[in-house]
Amino acid sequence: MTMFRHFLRTPEGRAGGLILALIALAALAAPVLFPGDPLAIAAQPMLHPFQNAAVPLGTDRLGRDVLAELAHGTRTSLLVGLAAAGAAVLVGAAVGTAAGFAGGIVDEALMRLTEAFQTVPAFLLALAFVSVIGPSLATVIVAIALSAWTQPARIARAEVLSIRERDYVAAARAIGMHPAEIALREVLPNALPPVLTLASVIVANAILIEAALSFLGLGDPNRVTWGGMIAEGRVVLRAAPWLSVIPGIALVLTVLGVYLAGEGAVEAMARRRGAP
């Protein structure tokens, strides 16, 4: 709880927290406010924003409600962002801990593997993966996680390397705890916080990669995504710029919110360490 107070005391934390709260609210309320399929044809096509009270943000080329699409798109973006980041942190932490704790040949092998993944640009890896497997929400999440786990792995390993030399780990060894138990119960929990601060960067990146994949037509076509909305709107960019601009703004706000919240978390953690 103190951690949260520290978090809210930073300006970044307040701003980020507010933006994220609003976005999370939109995501949660979307099915209530806009029940049914957001891709359903709701009104006359190509209505301008603020022209018709029933569809406040206007409609796209097929007559779909832009506001409903936007709200449901929030769900996809957040879902992909959180799921991909969750998977990446989990896998990364596991690999990093194993590498750092076991050392020797295991460490070498796992770290070379990590580097192999790091040499391929994240977006290209995701692009290749989705083009081969075929676009769906699950593959998009896996594709993003596939390139995002390397950073948490390296940080976890670095933390573990320092932690495993601490006295309490030596004590655990001395009382005869199983190495796996030491790794999971003593080392990992203490190595995790720095990895978690990285999570905000991963979430933001994941949202951007998802949008880029959808923009290229490699998102799940049965779900609304902001990237997909921008891609659709791009065809009529000169005639109806709002169709691209509105989801673009949503994307910028979300990523900004996640970054700010991440900054706030780092700051809060530093304050807690500095002045308990």
Binding site: L39, I41, L62, P135, G217, P221
Partner: peptide
């Protein structure tokens, strides 16, 4: 775009159509 429309038109009569996007070769 017609694919997007057709999915909605079919949904309106109770047929659930799942869109599958592929590149030209696929």
């Amino acid at each position: 775009q017609f694919g997007d429309y057709l999915r909605q038109a079919l949904a309106a009569v109770g047929i659930d159509a799942e869109l599958v996007n592929n590149d030209a070769a696929a």
